[in-house]
Amino acid sequence: MQIKENFNAFEDLVPPITELNKSYRENLAGGRLVLQACMLCNKNQYPFESFCYECGSTDLTEVSSTGEGSVYSFVKVHQPYHPAFKPFIPYFVSTVQLDDGPRMLAAMFESDDILEIGDRVAARIEKISETEAMLLFEKIR
């Protein structure tokens, strides 16, 4: 996977790697969206924790997400809060209800500049450095 133009600037925003987020971030860098799955109640969750938010179980594993879902709500950002986003302004930030898990928050850079609540979307993973990637969503056309 190549780093596309303007995407390397996002490296500045990457959170520090911890024991908890290491696997999620490494999988993302490999082009895969993974979630935590509870072995007891079968719920999928994000962010990663050492326990299940739903039932408290500590018996957790990882599963691949289909990355598909629907837009629950969104905003269109017009201000360059960080220089990395400047080339993409205005851009969307969406709350996406995944089909197979939790709601996720991610940016959407849509060339037609049109988005509606309920739109079907899929995960788009973009490389931002040799070892890091960022999660976006894009409309399923």
């Binding site: 996002f10 925003l13 990457v14 709500s73 969104f74 950002v77 960080h82 930030v93 928050l105 609540i117």
Partner: peptide, 28 residues
């Protein structure tokens, strides 16, 4: 100060965007 982390990487900075997400859902 300028935030870092998952929310920032999602393009969400500060309270206005978050409340706007609430407003958008209410409008819908």
């Amino acid at each position: 100060a300028r935030p870092r982390g998952e929310d920032a990487l999602a393009g969400l900075f500060g309270a206005p965007s978050s409340y706007a997400m609430v407003a958008k859902r209410h409008m819908y």
